[in-house]
């Protein structure tokens, strides 16, 4: 057995580690950055592509719902995050999302301010349906129920007959919470507007139910906790929707974090075996502890 064991003396790394502590911190923050700082470009590229590729593939498989931090509720602690966090900066927003979010941001009954953004969805009216694309302006009062404020839609309606410009107001509005782990923020209400008349005809009134979504900014969906406004876990919903993809995503992201631990050690201490192949001990050399 000892004939094939690697010799510890062959482990001296030839790489220039520069400032190992700084390299370790950089390697933690962004996989491969510590090695780039040390001038070890092949390893920098390898760690960057492999670790971040695995991490974001896991996030993609799990529809962005597999990396989040939850520690206050003992029954729903995310122990997986203890591994995921080692992926560095891509995993750290999860802590901020849990620590600095107001509970109102998880409540679908409130809008924390006026909302203006692009909108895509569908309009179902008396004589048909069509696809809506455009922009929408939702005053805070339209959601929070203060008065008769309405949202305003401006864009186009696409039906089998073609695409026409459309403007109108949306009342009885409801919108999903500001923060949730997906990019589309659902919005619906009752639309009333006018289709422009063809070749000088008067405009045609149109009314019906509008349903669609406005995009959430990255900060409102990236690694947000799976909680509702009352702090209840939405883990069951995520499992229902994703099935085994949830576990696959968790495993991918955990492995990415754990692999970066190896990369951090490599940045701080150098490679375990150095440049050399592990060699059997030289039979001509005296064994350690047996002085001649």
């Amino acid at each position: 057995m000892s004939d094939t064991a690697p010799t510890p003396t062959a482990a001296a790394p030839k790489a220039n580690l520069k400032n190992p502590i700084l390299a370790g911190v950089l390697a933690f923050l962004i996989p491969g950055l510590g090695h780039y700082y040390q001038g070890r470009l092949f390893k920098a590229a390898l760690y960057f592509v492999c670790i971040l590729g695995t991490f974001f593939t896991g996030l993609r498989i799990g529809h962005g719902q597999v990396v989040y931090f939850q520690w206050e509720d003992p029954e729903n602690r995310t122990y997986a995050y203890l591994c995921q966090v080692w992926a560095g900066l891509p995993a750290l927003p999860a802590i901020a999302q849990t620590k600095f979010r107001s509970k109102l941001a998880f409540d679908s009954r409130f809008l924390t301010g006026d909302l203006n953004g692009s909108f895509t969805g569908e309009l179902n009216y008396k004589t048909g349906s069509g696809r809506l694309e455009g922009s929408i302006a939702i005053p805070q009062a339209a959601i929070n129920g203060e008065g008769n404020n309405a949202a305003k839609f401006t864009g186009t309606l696409t039906t089998d007959e073609g695409t026409t410009p459309l403007e109108g107001t949306v009342t009885r509005c409801s919108i999903e919470s500001q923060v949730a782990p997906n990019r589309d923020r659902g919005f619906e209400g009752f639309f009333q507007g006018e289709l422009p008349g063809k070749s000088g005809d008067p405009p045609t009134p149109i009314a019906g139910s509008l349903k669609g979504s406005v995009p959430r900014p990255l900060w409102d969906w990236y690694e947000v906790p799976l909680n509702d406004a009352h702090g209840n876990s939405e883990l069951d919903r995520a499992h229902r929707e994703l099935g085994s993809r949830f576990e696959l995503g968790v495993v991918y992201t955990m492995i990415a974090g754990l692999l970066n631990v190896l990369a951090i050690f490599d940045a701080v201490y150098g490679p375990a075996y150095g440049d050399e192949e592990p060699r059997p001990p030289d039979p001509n050399q005296p064994a350690p502890g047996k002085a001649t």
């Binding site: 390893k43 390898l46 492999c50 492995i255 692999l259 490599d266 375990a272 150095g274």
Partner: peptide
């Protein structure tokens, strides 16, 4: 996963790209 784990593990053991 197997490919990535193998590459990263080997990279943490060796310095030479060919050996990795």
């Amino acid at each position: 996963l197997i490919v990535v784990i193998s590459l990263v593990y080997s990279a943490s053991r060796h310095e030479s790209s060919e050996l990795i």
